[in-house]
Nucleic acid binder design. Structure first.
Lengths: 226, 226
DNA sequence: CGTGTGTTTGACATACCTCAAAGTCTGTGG
DNA sequence: CCACAGACTTTGAGGTATGTCAAACACACG
């Protein structure tokens, strides 16, 4: 199912279009979140806050992604969604969605697919954060974001891609400190693999990056929303 | 929906009951997995293998959990499911399941709930692996498994719980080495917090453990399958 | 012109890993 | 019954990847 069809279905709901500037929260860690969101444009980061104030970014989302959904009866406290750049979303009351799901098997299947995709991506991130070096984690994350942004895996040398991230956000996603992320980005630049600067990623050597990122072919499929 | 009702529904499928001994693979990293499984008894570990042979355990599952499900069209290579003790599962062809889902909204909702629950748990693990110390990661994992096994959060001092895990498996789940897990377990024993020995966890000081594990109340709800 | 956020760099500290070796227990075959 | 191998655990010594602390720089914003 294409995004356009999906959006048409969503018009049967009391949806609202909302926009958020960079750094604005779509929902906060302790908000009762009664809405489900579909990204129309821009980047959103979903993060999970721990009791001592540490933050783990679990996902980066872009156009077509759905977020804010929760299992009924479970409170997922400590989760928040932040706009990374200028973001436009379609927000609808969660209650209305569950009604629609029963009558629209297509939409239901789409939703199940999205949730499964999300799981794959999160488990992939977990595996890298748990098992690999700082350099590999960063390389893998940048590959993920690149594929999400461009919706393709292969890139020519010196391609430039806009990724509206700070080094600090890369740190929160990879389980590193911003300072160490900075050191690793410097090393990647010195090794002529990539240059990440002011939200612009330059792929100096895409093949080297793919190797460093320990990229399996399969996961890249999940990064692309068709 | 209770497990009994669900099992009754599953009888409409060509399900098969299968058993696996400790260490046996329910499915391997490169198997085409055509089945979906529902655990009747025992523990199963789901893990994600990286290219260089590293392994990350992303979930531990017990009675009532569903696994083996994948988003249509996405190959999730490198994932495997291993029996930790004597495991009995109900296996059904994935194709049959999707037919049933359309006709049984109850089952469909249950499945969506399970997937959401799974996501919460994996994101929680990611946050701990990415952001916390070895001691906290281990404490948090042991709390998770304890709650899954007993289906309740509170425990009296010196309660004993059977958790059929090796230190090496704890290491694979927490992103540590088995050697370091051993050292941390020794420290927990010396600090009279817990003792983990031959698959038996003794909660010497449950409150101290809960604090160490940085346990939020909400996530515990997701650990219990009702 | 000051304040804040993000980046960059250096010196130093440490949590965790690696390597090495011995100990325990179980199962197996002679 | 003994010898052996294999999985898991335990401990020590030493190394290193990453974190911490400190300071300066750049840039945007009011």
């Amino acid at each position: 199912m294409k995004t356009e069809d999906e959006l048409r279905d969503l018009q049967m709901l009391q949806y609202r279009i909302r926009s958020y500037g960079p750094g604005k929260m779509v929902y906060g860690a302790h908000d009762p979140h009664a809405f489900v969101y579909n990204i129309i444009s821009g980047w959103v980061a979903i993060s999970h806050d721990l009791l001592d104030g540490q933050r783990q970014i679990s996902q980066f989302l872009t156009k077509g992604a759905i977020f804010g959904l929760r299992p009924e009866g479970l409170v997922s406290n400590g989760k928040s969604a932040m706009a990374l750049d200028e973001v436009t979303v379609c927000a609808m009351p969660a209650a209305n969605l569950s009604v629609l799901l029963n009558s629209h098997p297509q939409l239901n299947r789409r939703l199940v697919w999205m949730m499964g995709r999300e799981s794959l991506i999160t488990e992939n991130r977990l595996a890298f954060v748990g098992q690999t070096s700082a350099l590999t984690r960063i390389a893998n994350l940048l590959m993920e974001l690149t594929v999400m942004a461009t919706r393709k895996l292969a890139h020519m040398a010196d391609s430039k891609i806009r990724l509206p991230l700070t080094q600090s956000q890369i740190a929160d996603a990879t389980g590193l400190t911003a300072i160490h992320v900075n050191r690793m980005l410097r090393k990647l630049r010195e090794d002529r693999v990539l240059d990440f600067h002011d939200g612009i990623l330059t792929l100096m050597n895409p093949d080297a990056l793919k190797t460093l990122a320990q990229l399996g072919d399969e996961i890249a499929d999940a990064w692309v929303i068709d």
